[in-house]
Measured scan of single mutants.
Amino acid sequence: MAASAHGSVWGPLRLGIPGLCCRRPPLGLYARMRRLPGPEVSGRSVAAASGPGAWGTDHYCLELLRKRDYEGYLCSLLLPAESRSSVFALRAFNVELAQVKDSVSEKTIGLMRMQFWKKTVEDIYCDNPPHQPVAIELWKAVKRHNLTKRWLMKIVDEREKNLDDKAYRNIKELENYAENTQSSLLYLTLEILGIKDLHADHAASHIGKAQGIVTCLRATPYHGSRRKVFLPMDICMLHGVSQEDFLRRNQDKNVRDVIYDIASQAHLHLKHARSFHKTVPVKAFPAFLQTVSLEDFLKKIQRVDFDIFHPSLQQKNTLLPLYLYIQSWRKTY
């Protein structure tokens, strides 16, 4: 089996927390979720979201995140109150960019949308954001926290390059993509939290790379249903696996070995980020709550012996909000 052949990389499970039942964490995340308004986002309300009498641009960002990046939404709820709305805006910006690729039928249209967001970032730093909910909220975040323009532009530029429907040539190319998107998002989150620390940035770099790799793995069944495969070609070739094997949902050992190798790289990034947690300011830990969902996925895929098409991998963990709150309460990542 794939797991038994390579099992030495995987460390002990961390979500089991001995003695936790003896201490009762304060009510927090679930209460916040219940208090949030929840009407559906419609095209009509989106168009009017920044106008008078609408929910408001902040509510639009929150709803977009809740629907399109639920794990990011849950993590954002546990940030300090003064930072929450800015991170909602930042993550909503990322969602807007991420959904361009799947929402257009022609690359030219995707490039036009990316050009809109490039100009939007430029206009935000000229205090002239367009009348668009996410743009307005992002402008507020930039003004409030003096966010670095370079990180925002890196996210747009990398998403634009990724409009080509090509597999990553190697794991390094996937890591570079993750660094310029997910890690950049974390650098900006640290700025919102008021953290300027080399060790925190180092952790953000590795956690962002782990996030990018896990996202690529999780999306494999969806991409396969659209006749697309984006997994690193070098690892596929190493194990003699073709793109057609993934399109046919082949579950042979060599296919699972490909998934094992890729998942192991995410695991190593996560492990390395945690190896120097004592040197990272505690104030930075809330920015890294996504490690909970990353670890949850890596454990699940290990349990199914790296069968990327196993139905259990597509099921939401209903206990994730609780695990996130516990992680926040324990002040760790």
Rank of each mutant, 00 (worst) to 15 (best):
N180C: 14
R66K: 14
Y325V: 12
V156A: 08
V95M: 06
L74Q: 03
Y187G: 01
I109F: 05
I326Q: 07
I124R: 03
A263K: 00
S205K: 04
R150V: 07
L186V: 08
I109E: 05
Q265C: 10
E173G: 07
W151K: 05
H202A: 06
I171A: 04
V142D: 02
L319M: 15
N162D: 15
V282P: 12
H199A: 09
L193Y: 02
H223S: 12
F246K: 02
V280I: 08
V134T: 14
K172L: 12
R274F: 00
E173P: 00
K67L: 10
L320D: 02
L90N: 01
I192R: 05
V258D: 00
W139Q: 06
C126M: 15
G208N: 00
V280H: 00
I301L: 14
F230I: 13
K316W: 09
L320A: 05
R169Y: 12
P80M: 03
D234G: 03
E244G: 03
V214F: 04
T120K: 03
V304H: 08
S242T: 09
V258F: 00
E175D: 06
P311G: 12
R66N: 07
N176L: 13
K331V: 11
D165L: 14
L90S: 02
K300M: 12
S76L: 06
T318V: 13
V121C: 06
A98L: 06
S183T: 10
Y323I: 15
Q132L: 14
E63T: 15
K228E: 11
Q243D: 04
L238M: 08
L289D: 00
W55L: 13
F309I: 05
L294W: 00
E122Y: 08
S293T: 13
S275H: 08
A92T: 07
R256H: 07
Q243L: 05
S85D: 11
D69G: 01
K316Y: 12
M237S: 10
D234N: 06
T279H: 10
D257Q: 04
A210Y: 00
E63Y: 13
D102M: 09
W329Y: 10
I235D: 03
S50G: 09
T220W: 03
C126K: 15
Y70W: 08
L324I: 13
L77G: 03
V87C: 14
F297G: 02
G224N: 14
V100D: 05
E244W: 04
E96F: 04
L231C: 04
D257I: 04
Y125C: 06
R169K: 11
E122T: 10
P52K: 11
P321N: 02
D164A: 12
D261W: 06
E160R: 05
D305V: 00
I109N: 15
I192P: 01
G208Y: 00
H199L: 07
R159Q: 05
V255G: 05
T189A: 09
D164S: 15
N250S: 08
Q314L: 12
P281I: 00
T148S: 09
K67E: 10
S103I: 10
R68C: 14
K140G: 03
F276Y: 06
S312V: 14
N180D: 08
M112Q: 14
N146A: 12
S225Y: 15
D261L: 06
A98D: 05
V255E: 04
I155N: 05
R218M: 11
L97Y: 01
H59R: 10
S50C: 12
L217S: 01
E160Y: 14
E191G: 04
R218L: 08
S225V: 15
F230W: 11
H131K: 14
I301S: 03
W329V: 09
A89R: 03
S184M: 14
N250P: 09
V255R: 07
Q132R: 09
H239E: 02
P130A: 11
A210G: 05
K101R: 10
Y222G: 06
G208C: 00
V156E: 00
T57G: 13
P232K: 01
R218F: 02
Q290Y: 10
P129K: 11
H145A: 06
T332N: 13
E82M: 13
I326K: 06
T291D: 01
D305R: 07
D127P: 03
H145N: 10
L193C: 10
P130C: 08
K278H: 09
P133C: 09
V229D: 02
F309H: 07
F297S: 05
Q99F: 11
Y73K: 01
A167I: 13
K172I: 15
D201Q: 05
T279W: 11
R84K: 10
R113T: 08
K172E: 08
I155F: 06
L174K: 01
G51H: 14
T279R: 14
K283A: 15
H310G: 00
L152T: 00
D157E: 13
Y60N: 06
F246H: 01
K107G: 13
D307C: 04
V241D: 01
L90C: 09
I259A: 07
V95K: 02
E122N: 11
L163D: 04
V100A: 13
E106N: 11
F297T: 07
T220K: 03
H131P: 13
L324G: 03
A203F: 01
G72M: 11
Y260F: 15
A47G: 06
E173S: 11
L185T: 08
W151Q: 07
P321M: 06
E158Y: 13
K283Y: 09
A81Y: 14
Y70T: 08
C126N: 14
V229E: 04
L198N: 04
I301G: 00
A273K: 02
P232R: 00
P281W: 02
K253L: 13
V282L: 10
P52Y: 14
R330P: 00
F288Y: 08
L90A: 05
E82S: 14
V156R: 03
S293V: 14
S242Q: 05
A48K: 12
D257L: 09
K161T: 12
W117F: 07
Y260N: 06
D69N: 05
P130I: 09
T291E: 01
A273S: 11
C216I: 14
N250Y: 11
V280K: 00
H202F: 05
V142K: 10
Y333D: 01
K299M: 09
L270S: 03
I109D: 07
H59Q: 12
Y325R: 05
P130V: 13
N176A: 15
V134A: 09
Q290D: 08
A200I: 01
S275G: 14
Q327V: 05
V46L: 14
L97I: 15
H202M: 05
V121Q: 01
L65T: 09
A49E: 07
V282W: 09
A141H: 01
K149L: 05
H145I: 03
S76H: 03
K140W: 02
N250R: 15
V100P: 05
H199R: 11
N176Q: 15
K278A: 13
K278E: 14
H202Q: 06
L217H: 01
D69L: 00
T148H: 10
F93D: 03
L74A: 05
T181N: 02
V95P: 01
Q327P: 00
D157F: 09
D165N: 08
T220C: 15
E106D: 13
F276W: 09
K118P: 00
T189L: 15
S45W: 10
L268A: 10
D261Y: 06
L65H: 02
N250G: 13
Q302N: 07
Q132K: 07
T148F: 01
L163V: 13
S105F: 15
M237L: 07
T181V: 15
K166L: 15
I213D: 02
A203G: 02
Y73R: 01
D165K: 07
A273R: 00
A200D: 01
K118R: 10
D127E: 09
H239W: 03
L77E: 02
L186S: 04
Y168D: 00
G56V: 15
K278T: 11
R150M: 12
D257F: 05
L198S: 04
A54V: 08
A210E: 01
N170P: 00
T148R: 08
D127S: 08
T220I: 13
I136G: 03
P80H: 06
I109K: 12
L289A: 07
R68G: 09
L90T: 07
N128E: 11
V142P: 00
M112V: 12
R218Y: 03
L97W: 01
L163G: 05
K278P: 12
S225I: 09
F246P: 02
D252K: 12
R227H: 12
L319P: 04
L163Q: 07
K172N: 13
N162E: 07
R68P: 01
Q302G: 06
A287S: 05
N317M: 10
N176I: 14
A263I: 03
A284F: 01
I262F: 05
S264I: 08
D69Q: 00
R150D: 05
L185H: 03
D157V: 11
A284R: 01
Y60P: 05
S103A: 12
F309G: 05
K166V: 15
